[in-house]
Nucleic acid binder design. Structure first.
Length: 263
DNA sequence: AAGCAGAACAACCGCCTACTT
DNA sequence: GAAGTAGGCGGTTGTTCTGCT
């Protein structure tokens, strides 16, 4: 029903594969400007040769400022386990209970860790059941298998806790340091964006027959990096350019952030 | 150092639902 | 109410990273 390329007049073939840094920067810039909506439109006017879907996914899973990077902690794992036991594969729902984690992240984590554990437990239980007298163990259902798997995994997670929690502490400290800076930066962005009423902007865009040209005139034209100096110069873009905003998991980036905060 | 296997992560695809016209 | 569209979701695949031999 919904075609990926969607939107009006999308003649160019959408680009696929890994995102380049300039694409990320471009996306961040336009999301800050236009908000997290109308992804097809955003994809079109930003000059990114990506589908709206792809843009949204990139933003939600990788570029969103609220994202927590680093390994899933023992606490998070326990939460995932219990929520998965309750809701099943409702990843987005589970993700809402884990601030800073995306459904994709949790889904991947489950695939690589938990499912394997669950399967192992299942196999063990099966072997055990076969080994034992078949008469007494006929009531071993799939449900109980997975339940025991969950319980065991949970226990395993607890034993791993010391090592993992150490990492998470570091991550949290690091994240906290970053957050304070990004808040500062956000303030700059908000200050800039508040100069323009975004809703009014959307209305104007909707009313305009030639909105792509209108947007292009802002300096997208397929390359914000080059066109960025157009008036008014965006603090977002400057920040992206100077501090590689898109590489939010990069330690070097964090260091730069800290330096930026001190200046 | 090279090769391999498994883990981790990023991205795409297809379907579904909610919303708009 | 029907049709079309945008966005969200879960499943899956492809790529990169990491540790081991």
């Amino acid at each position: 029903m919904c075609n990926n390329s969607g939107g009006r007049g999308g003649a160019r073939a959408a680009r696929k594969g890994p995102w380049a840094e300039n694409e990320d920067a471009q996306l961040v810039w336009f999301v800050r400007l236009l908000g997290e909506r109308r992804w097809d439109f955003l994809a079109q006017v930003s000059g990114l040769r990506r589908t709206g879907k792809s843009c949204r996914l990139r933003w939600v899973n990788y570029l969103h400022p609220g994202l927590k990077r680093g390994r899933i902690t023992a606490d998070e794992e326990r939460l995932i386990l219990s929520l998965h036991a309750e809701w099943g594969s409702r990843w987005s729902r589970i993700a809402r209970k884990l601030p800073g984690r995306t459904d994709n992240e949790i889904k991947n984590y489950w695939r690589t860790h938990m499912r394997k554990k669950a399967q192992e437990e299942k196999m063990l239980a099966k072997k055990k059941a076969v080994a034992e007298a078949s008469s007494s163990t006929t009531s071993l259902t799939t449900t109980t298998c997975s339940a025991s798997a969950t319980a065991t995994s949970s226990r395993a997670a607890t034993t791993e806790a010391p090592q993992e929690s150490g990492t998470s502490m570091d991550d949290e400290a690091e994240e906290e340091a970053t957050t304070s800076v990004s808040e500062e930066n956000k303030a700059e962005v908000v200050q800039y964006c508040s100069a323009v009423d975004i809703d009014q902007l959307w209305n104007d865009i909707a009313a305009s027959e030639s909105y792509p040209e209108m947007m292009m005139s802002w300096g997208s034209a397929g390359n914000v990096a080059v066109a960025a100096p157009v008036e008014p110069s965006s603090p977002v873009w400057e920040f992206c350019e100077d501090y590689s905003l898109w590489r939010i998991d990069d330690h070097e980036y964090y260091n730069k952030i800290d330096q930026h905060a001190l200046n």
